[in-house]
Amino acid sequence: MGDGHRRSASGPASTPPRVEPLPGEPAATATVGSQRVLFVADYHAGYEAGLRYERGVDVPSRAPDRREQLLALLERVRPDRLVVLGDLMHSIGEPGGAERGELEVLFESFPATFAVTVVKGNHDGRIETWLTDSDDIGSDVTVVSGDGITIGDVGVCHGHTWPTPAVLESDVICLGHEHPCVRLEDEVGGSRVERAWLRGRLDPDPFRDRPEYEGVSWLEGTDGSPPGVVVFPAFNDLVGGTWINVSGQSFLSPFIPAGLAEGDAYLLDGTRLGPYESV
């Protein structure tokens, strides 16, 4: 599953970076320039502690499982950079206790010179106040605003707020926040919920009348076409999400689903389910 192609009004189609999900995993890779990049979204470290505090539900910590899953992906892919598309942690305020401990152990497991970019999500609070300054974090860590940045021709944002104009000018936009899931039913009435990918292209309608996007060439029809969009499943399999094929479900992002045209859903194993609205 790749992303869409940008077509310039003044020439033939360029070859944009391809964001390729890893089969069976809630993660994707792309080659951006000379860098191999691994993308994940919605890690939600400390989620189990949050359940105890917020709902009184006692769930054994899966922090070691999350860490080992991510480290196995790093070993398999050997990326130059890890990009977290928001909600690395779960608590909205200052990380503490089990949550901070989980993240410190995770980052201590990375090579000392390994580059990590964290796009701030709505759950990431003041994560930059300790993650980038801690003597216990050996990685090369950068924390950026949730409205996103560009990494080469790939735009990255969390999805809980409107992206920057620069992100809209990218060839493909990667975001999290939604935790898309599908509810699948079998012939005898049984059902299960599975995490899913959403992929399509950006629909210009929600963006056209917003003043901050004045000058975005494809929105004004002067050059190019809308970027591709990849909405990531949550890395953390406990957090639930938006059931994209169940009526009455509300999406979380201010520009999804209105900003997603021709959106298809895929399971983690790569199975294409077709247009997400009719799965």
Rank of each mutant, 00 (worst) to 15 (best):
R6W: 03
A112R: 14
F251E: 05
R192Q: 15
Y53F: 13
G221W: 02
A30L: 07
W218A: 07
L198S: 05
P16G: 11
I92C: 07
S170L: 03
V156P: 04
P79N: 14
R81M: 15
G11R: 15
V37D: 05
I256H: 06
A27N: 08
G138Y: 00
R126D: 12
P21F: 14
S91P: 09
P226E: 10
D171Q: 09
G248R: 04
G121D: 01
I256C: 07
P180R: 10
R192N: 09
A28F: 01
T222C: 00
G2I: 03
P12H: 10
L38R: 03
L22R: 04
P26N: 08
E212R: 03
T142F: 10
G11W: 12
P254R: 13
P227D: 00
P60Y: 13
E54H: 11
G56M: 09
L202Y: 02
Y213R: 07
E277Q: 15
D203V: 07
G152M: 09
G263L: 02
V144F: 01
R52M: 14
C174F: 09
V144R: 12
R55L: 15
D124L: 03
V230K: 00
E48T: 06
G263F: 01
G215H: 04
P23T: 12
D209Y: 04
L219M: 12
V182F: 04
Y213G: 05
D269R: 06
E99M: 06
T113F: 07
E20W: 02
D80T: 02
E128T: 11
P211N: 06
G189F: 11
Q69P: 09
E94S: 14
G190A: 12
A265E: 00
I137Q: 13
R67C: 12
S10L: 14
R272Y: 00
A9Y: 05
W162C: 04
G241K: 00
G176T: 10
T113R: 07
P23W: 06
R67P: 12
G263Q: 02
D264H: 11
P64T: 14
V77T: 04
R183Y: 01
T129A: 11
Y266S: 10
R52W: 10
D186F: 09
E262A: 06
S34P: 03
L73A: 09
Y47V: 09
G215C: 02
R100V: 00
V119T: 05
G11L: 11
V231H: 06
A49D: 10
A234F: 00
R81N: 10
R81L: 15
V239Y: 03
L71H: 13
P17L: 03
V154A: 01
G46M: 15
A45N: 05
F255L: 04
L175G: 13
D264A: 08
V19Q: 00
L273C: 03
R195T: 05
R18N: 13
V193E: 07
D147N: 10
V118R: 00
E54S: 15
V83M: 04
G125Q: 12
H44R: 07
S61V: 12
G101F: 09
P12Q: 09
T117P: 00
W197S: 02
W197F: 10
L198M: 03
